[in-house]
Amino acid sequence: MFSFCSDPSVLPQWQWFACYLTTGTHLAFYRSFLVVITLILLAAPAALLMGFAGAIAMRSHFTPLSWLGKGYTGLVRGVPDIVFFLFVPIAIGQGVEYVLHLINCPDWDQPVRQGSDFLVCREAKMPPVGSPAWVRDIYGFILALIAFALVFGAFVANTLYGAMNAVPRAQVETAEAYGMNRRQSFLHIVMPQMWVFALPGLSNIWMILIKATPLLFLLGIQDIVYWARELGGQKTSFYTYPHPDWRVWYFLAVLVFYLSLTWVSERFFEHLMNRFNRGQATADGERQRKGATA
């Protein structure tokens, strides 16, 4: 990185650190922070969509659909989420390969599961055999993203379901009295107002989402935890920058990163809640209204 880095063993301390902290592996470490932020930014809307669909399903008058919705949220919440993070990517991965196998290799006569092997034909491999490393990385990331969307979708579904029911019933009845059908009253009355009831729950889920991202590590993705462990471990003189076990400092840095992420989010949601409460039939909205007229 810097011109003076050519022979680190003779450098004074601050220069040694300047060089050490800009090595290729450290740059990869810094990039992994972006991976985490990308995951959060992609998982949040995905979970919101899943959750919205789930909440609509739960409200449905068609009984099997509402059972499906309630079963989905109940199941996800009764089981440690980590089980889902481990289960979903493998299950989807094998599921996709199995479907491709049925499509591409109809003549295959052996069973797919033999003993401890999962056998599909070569054309059914996902990602395709011989694809470069980055394709496999992205595929793995997408599977992880699906797992996050599934788990957090269930949380969101529950919050949105509660929020939809919290919209004063009288308003919906008024809408129906004006001749709106179920769809119209949902679109024009419930939808616009449910968000203020959902916000505390959603902000809570956002915090949980942030705190669940280190679990990426368990899915074999080179995330912050992977690099912190890797870089922090003792390095012998085979490496250009030998050092003793520094894991504690790396994990401290990761802790600080997460603390600042949650701190910023907390401030942001406080601000948002203030804005949302304006003109709403909630205690805070009432207070704001009184403050304005007084």
Binding site: I210, K211, A212, T213, P214, L215, F217, V225, A228, R229, G232, D245, R247, V248, F251, L252, V254, L255, Y258, L259, T262, W263
Partner: peptide, 22 residues
């Protein structure tokens, strides 16, 4: 309260383990 609620338990395990080791 902020420290323990604001950071992931998973990282706390890693961090405290490396502290205990020292």
């Amino acid at each position: 309260i902020f420290f323990f609620r604001g950071s992931p338990l998973f990282i706390q395990f890693f961090f405290f383990y490396s502290v205990f080791v020292l």
